[in-house]
């Protein structure tokens, strides 16, 4: 493993027409870590993710992935380079079966090395047994939580170095959010590098190592979750004193070390 961060974002700006949404966003994601981007509506979280994916063009600044400048690279080629996506709203292909969704997810893997596909498929099925049970079911007919598993599995099967997860809980029922939480905890254990955008801040904080707080198009605070206090959180999210109480309780839940961290400590040792 090298020391360079897997993902480096240098001062990117982006927008639509006359509106500039990102005014210079910078952060780094070290290998094997999970970064979270938090902020209120309109802070620019999703646009940042779309810039990382290459779906929204950046106006200035650069994105380095695995040491390579990918700022002008198409989304498809970024995927071939090892980016994986769990897009906003999950976006599974509703009229394709579960297995077909996974086969498409492995599109670049199968082009690189077709023989690895079966093993990768089995790996995903082992991790998400529900997908094996429903392999011939149309993805659109599954529940929200199952679709979330499929979206995550579809990203994992391509053996990505980095997974970008964009508001996975949006539009999910509370029960499905629980399922999703379990799924993401599971993925976190594999040691894959991940960037997570989440509206549900309490949920998001429970998953990530490093939090990047965004406000009106810039990152206003970056730091390990362990060092975050409720004051910082409330101030930098721009939601003022009102939410301090809630933020505090979310953090309290987060302070206790989780098995995941121990696992990572072992791995990096």
């Amino acid at each position: 493993m090298t020391d360079t961060p897997l993902l480096e974002v240098h001062d990117i700006t982006a927008g639509f027409g006359a509106v500039t949404v990102l005014h210079g966003v910078s952060f780094e994601v070290p290998r094997g870590s999970i970064a979270g981007i938090f902020g209120l509506n309109g802070a620019g979280k999703s646009v940042t993710m779309k810039c990382l994916a290459g779906v929204v063009p950046t106006r200035s600044g650069s994105v380095l992935f695995d040491g390579e400048d990918v700022t002008r690279m198409s989304p498809e080629r970024r995927v071939a380079r090892g980016m994986g996506h769990v897009p906003q709203g999950r976006q599974v292909f509703p009229d394709l079966t579960v297995e077909e969704n996974l086969r498409l997810g492995a599109y670049t893997l199968r082009r690189r090395n077709r023989s690895r596909y079966q093993a990768a498929l089995d790996g995903v099925f082992d991790r998400f047994p529900v997908l094996r049970d429903r392999r011939t079911q149309k993805a659109g007919t599954m529940s929200g939580g199952q679709q979330a598993s499929l979206a995550v599995g579809r990203a994992l099967i391509n053996e990505p170095q980095l997974i970008l997860v964009d508001e996975p809980s949006a539009g999910l029922s509370p029960v499905a959010t629980l399922e999703l939480d379990a799924v993401l905890q599971e993925v976190a254990k594999t040691g894959v590098t991940m960037v997570l955008v989440e509206q549900n801040i309490a949920f998001g904080l429970s998953l990530v190592d490093t939090a990047h707080l965004m406000q009106t198009g810039t990152v206003v605070h970056s730091g390990p979750v362990a060092e975050l206090d409720d004051q910082t959180l409330a101030t930098h999210l721009g939601i003022g004193r009102v939410l301090q109480a809630a933020a505090g309780s979310a953090l309290a839940a987060r302070q206790a070390p989780r098995p995941k961290e121990k696992a990572r400590a072992r791995r990096t040792a």
Binding site: P75, V79, Y107
Partner: peptide, 24 residues
Amino acid sequence: SDFGLGILAAAQDPAAVRLVGVPL
């Protein structure tokens, strides 16, 4: 074929097709 599957998927969600690496 994978590519044919990509064609069917593109009809449902062109944006997501790019995100799984199919050259749209």
